[in-house]
């Protein structure tokens, strides 16, 4: 089943399918290692609900919900 990264529940892992678009945001996400086939885990949200925190390729990455929505995943 495919969904977007912002829907990934805290503590769960999923596999990245792809990043939508070819603008600066998409490129930055790709450069940070969000490529297809890579696994990613949600570490929860900031106290005010946004941005979100993830673990990918062994480091911690923070993204806003709108940005995470552009990453399709398969859980």
């Amino acid at each position: 089943m495919s969904q977007t990264l912002d829907q990934l529940p805290e503590g769960q892992a999923a596999t990245i399918l792809d990043v939508e678009g070819d603008d600066a945001v998409a490129v930055r996400l790709l450069e940070m290692g969000l490529t297809d086939g890579e696994s990613i885990r949600s570490l929860g949200a900031a106290p005010l609900g946004d941005p979100l925190e993830f673990e990918v390729r062994g480091y911690r990455l923070s993204l806003r919900i709108v940005e995470a929505r552009r990453v399709r995943i398969r859980s």
Partner: peptide
């Protein structure tokens, strides 16, 4: 603007 940031240890 986007917010894509590494959180260092």
């Amino acid at each position: 603007p986007p917010f894509v940031m590494e959180l260092p240890a």
